[in-house]
């Protein structure tokens, strides 16, 4: 039955396209034919002047912070791993959470080790009921996009640019009310498109799932009033490591 539908659909499309083509050669009902052959796509996308910056520069990190600010995210720019741990500690203390869940990324683990306790640290494969109760999730952002303040969260054994072989971060970055992403400034790219391209490995493979996240989750479904934090995180922090 399924195969049946497949051939039905494909032959219906072919028949329709053929009919449109023959109408076109007859100079059909609707005037001259539109140019169906699209102009070749170039990699040149509409860009702002900012695109010509060197991504690793201070301008890029400042740009990322400004963009994240605009979407109610918080960017902590730090210049050492100790600074990153301090920033993380401050976020945890501010929110007064008792449980923190982490992803598998070595850098995330390393920074968390420097944070002085007072909370229970859960691994990413902790019981789901515990994860749902967890206050903060800490994971690695594989790419940061300067133009929008976007972080890219990729899963699986193809975790992108400099991630661990298998970073389990999907639930860590999604279930807790606060998500803290660790981002190295060398992983910054200017545009969304560049981030998409750099997700592909040398062999052209893509990670099983990649989420481009820009700020905390939001809705305007009740009288178009903006509310931050619906199903995804209510707070989005990015700790940007300027020394890495």
């Amino acid at each position: 039955m399924i195969n049946d539908d497949r051939s039905t659909i494909l032959s219906a499309i072919k028949a329709s396209l053929a009919q449109a083509a023959s109408a076109r050669t007859r100079g059909g009902l609707h005037g001259p034919p539109p140019s169906i052959a699209a102009p070749p796509l170039t990699n040149e996308l509409p860009k702002s002047a900012a695109d010509r910056r060197d991504p690793a520069s201070t301008l890029a990190t400042a740009g990322f912070q400004t963009a994240l600010d605009r979407v109610q995210g918080v960017c902590h720019r730090v210049t050492s791993d100790a600074g990153a741990a301090d920033a993380l500690q401050a976020v945890i203390a501010d929110l007064g959470v008792r449980r923190v869940v982490r992803s598998d990324d070595p850098l995330v683990i390393e920074i968390l080790e420097r944070v002085i306790g007072g909370f229970e640290l859960l691994p990413p494969n902790a019981d789901r009921a515990l994860l749902l109760e967890c206050g903060i999730g800490v994971s690695r952002a594989t790419i940061g996009v300067v133009e929008y303040g976007t972080i890219v969260l990729s899963s699986g054994d193809m975790a992108g640019v400099s991630g661990a072989p298998t970073e389990r971060q999907r639930l860590v970055s999604l279930l807790p009310a606060t998500h803290v992403a660790i981002l190295a400034s060398t992983d910054l790219v200017e545009t969304w498109d560049a981030a998409l391209t750099s997700l592909r490995s040398a062999s052209g493979d893509l990670p099983p799932t990649a989420t481009f996240a820009t700020g905390p989750s939001r809705t305007a479904d009740i009288e178009l009033e903006l509310v931050l934090g619906v199903h995804g995180p209510k707070n989005q922090h990015v700790i940007l490591l300027e020394h890495r």
């Binding site: 699986g156 054994d157 893509l206 995804g232």
Partner: peptide, 23 residues
């Protein structure tokens, strides 16, 4: 909606590749 970009764009390419993974 008039946002420069939506909060999330999720690109799904395959189911989880190892049993321990999320998804």
């Amino acid at each position: 909606t008039g946002q420069a970009i939506s909060c999330y764009q999720t690109l799904i390419t395959k189911p989880k590749t190892s049993p321990e993974d999320d998804g």
